[in-house]
């Protein structure tokens, strides 16, 4: 099997959160990123944070349909981590130019821009869901995140029939959408 093929397979696995593929990328790249961070004023915890954020970037990139990676996974992960870490250092006013252990670095500006947008959206949703309170939070999480069907939810939350559960879910959903979209529109107009 050619290496490009295997990388492609790994990325396909990553896109569906296949454990083996994710583990493989993790194992192959983490130490490299960790030494990058630690050699540049960071701690082991910083390394974990930055690396996992880069993994999310790669994951979401892999999930989006129009995905192509025109470099090795290693190069991409390294480049993203490098940028993310530089940014954090700048925020803490501890800027230092990292001595690159890797010659090849690719442009990841666009990817990071998308990523930041997604971060903002993620925070909005998280915020909105946390605002709901119980039982709305658990009810909607069961339906939309864990993808349970209404029969299961009705039984689990103690509703006498699915119509009652649907009714409750509808009310909760309306609240969630209201909270989310009010932030979302604000966020858009700010941007």
């Amino acid at each position: 099997m050619k290496p490009e093929n295997s990388e492609k397979e790994i990325l396909e696995g990553l896109a569906v959160n296949d454990r083996k593929s994710v583990e493989r990328i993790y194992k192959d790249n983490f130490n490299m990123v960790q030494s990058l961070i630690i050699n540049n004023n960071g701690s082991a915890d910083d390394a974990k944070d930055v690396f996992q954020e880069a993994m999310i970037v790669l994951y979401e990139k892999a999930r989006s349909g129009n995905f192509e990676l025109n470099c090795q996974i290693k190069t991409f992960v390294y480049s993203v981590c490098r940028r993310l870490w530089l940014k954090r250092l700048q925020q803490q006013n501890r800027y230092s130019s990292p001595g690159d252990s890797m010659a090849e670095v690719v442009q990841v500006d666009d990817d990071l821009e998308t990523h930041e947008q997604r971060n903002a959206e993620f925070d909005m949703m998280e915020n909105a869901i946390n605002h709901l309170g119980e039982p709305c939070k658990s009810l909607l999480e069961a339906f939309y995140l864990q993808k349970q069907n209404m029969q299961m939810i009705a039984a689990q939350f103690g509703y006498t029939n699915t119509d009652n559960a649907k009714n409750q879910k509808y009310k909760c959903l309306m609240r969630l959408k209201k909270i989310f979209f009010s932030q979302y529109k604000n966020g858009k107009s700010d941007g």
């Binding site: 959160n17 993790y26 999310i56 994951y59 999930r63 959206e121 993620f122």
Partner: peptide
């Protein structure tokens, strides 16, 4: 949006596991 949210949450927890 909510799917993205859910996917990222799941992925994050699997990253921590790994």
């Amino acid at each position: 949006q909510i799917n993205h949210f859910g996917e990222r949450k799941t992925f994050r927890s699997s990253l921590n596991d790994i």
